Amino acid sequence: MASYTTFSILLLLIGLTSCYKPVILFHGILSGSENMVLLEETIKLFHPGTKVYNCGKFPYWNSLESSWRQVRELKKYLEEINALHHEGVHFIGYSQGGLLGRAAIQSYPQHNIKNFISLSSPQAGQYGDSFLRLIFPNLVAKEAFELFYSRIGQHTSIGGYWNDPFNQELYFKFSKFLPYINNEIFSLNSTNFKNGISKLNKMILIGGPNDGVITPWESSHFGFYNKSLSVVPLYERDIYINDEIGLKTLDKAGKLILIAKSHVNHLCWHTNPWIIREVILPHLD
């Protein structure tokens, strides 16, 4: 009887430690995999047996390399991990890492990413002084287009998603990243970009009004400024109305989840265990 009980417990433990899909983590700008360790440990603590891949590519100053260069390398990384886990994996990208991760998924429509979690990421772009001061202390938002909408500026990751509402003509002329992955500009990859998103089981977009870095914070939900600096929410923007990258498709199928949480600073989304338990863990089934 004792041996039968022990065997039953072992079977239960095996079941508990094998029911969670692997998780890929990708860090934000001017940081590295070390900054994602608390998130990794929290996932393993509450979801025992979870295999976590904490991607260390493009750490710290290397995170300023061009968006497309990072996306290409991240795509290769996803291909390698996907080949090991035919059951599928989840992806969590923090800040810039969520935007680049989304682009890598779009560039790899054969992926087996199940749930994509964008953790306070500038999915509709970035425009604001608070963010710039972290990297370019003497640069202000209203003048940043002179740097970012240039050949040199487009060799920086930020230049790839800087979205100046007052200089949209230059944005579409010079930006080689964001308007393409958002299918604002049609390209040979536009169909793949949409298929990569539509294939997801769930897309979870997380952000909040007290973030303090992502500007506007609604960019984490694909909302963005108009020329009056009023925020146009996702559901009123062409990217959703015309289903340009598959967001409407996901939404109509109940697969698009928007989470807005107040009183969370940008640096706390991935470092506060209570926040992680509340907004991330429920989506790592």
Rank of each mutant, 00 (worst) to 15 (best):
E146K: 12
V279T: 07
K176R: 12
N242E: 12
N192C: 11
F7L: 10
K75S: 06
N189K: 12
P109E: 05
Y180T: 04
S219K: 07
I185Y: 09
K142E: 12
I14G: 15
N54S: 01
K227M: 14
H85T: 05
L74S: 02
Q96N: 04
K57V: 07
K261M: 13
T249V: 03
W68N: 15
I135A: 08
E65I: 10
H47N: 09
G28A: 13
E87T: 04
G32K: 04
R151P: 11
A144N: 02
G246F: 01
I245H: 01
L84N: 09
T42R: 05
E184N: 05
R69Q: 14
F172S: 13
T249A: 08
R151T: 14
P122W: 03
H263S: 14
L205G: 02
K76E: 12
I113T: 08
F91H: 00
L45D: 15
N272H: 08
K57R: 13
H270D: 14
E143G: 08
N112L: 03
F166D: 13
H266Q: 06
H27L: 06
V37H: 10
R151K: 09
P137Y: 07
L284M: 03
I117L: 11
G207W: 05
L119M: 06
A103I: 00
E143H: 10
L247F: 03
I24E: 00
I135N: 04
L13F: 12
N62R: 15
L10I: 14
Y235M: 06
L64T: 10
G196T: 05
V213L: 13
E236C: 04
K202A: 06
P137H: 02
D211M: 02
S198N: 07
L139K: 04
E41T: 12
S95I: 10
T50I: 05
G101D: 09
E34I: 08
F177Y: 11
N265F: 12
F46A: 07
M36F: 08
G93E: 04
Q110K: 15
W68V: 10
N167H: 13
P22M: 00
A2L: 15
H270C: 05
W269L: 04
E79H: 06
V231W: 00
E41C: 09
S175M: 01
F91K: 00
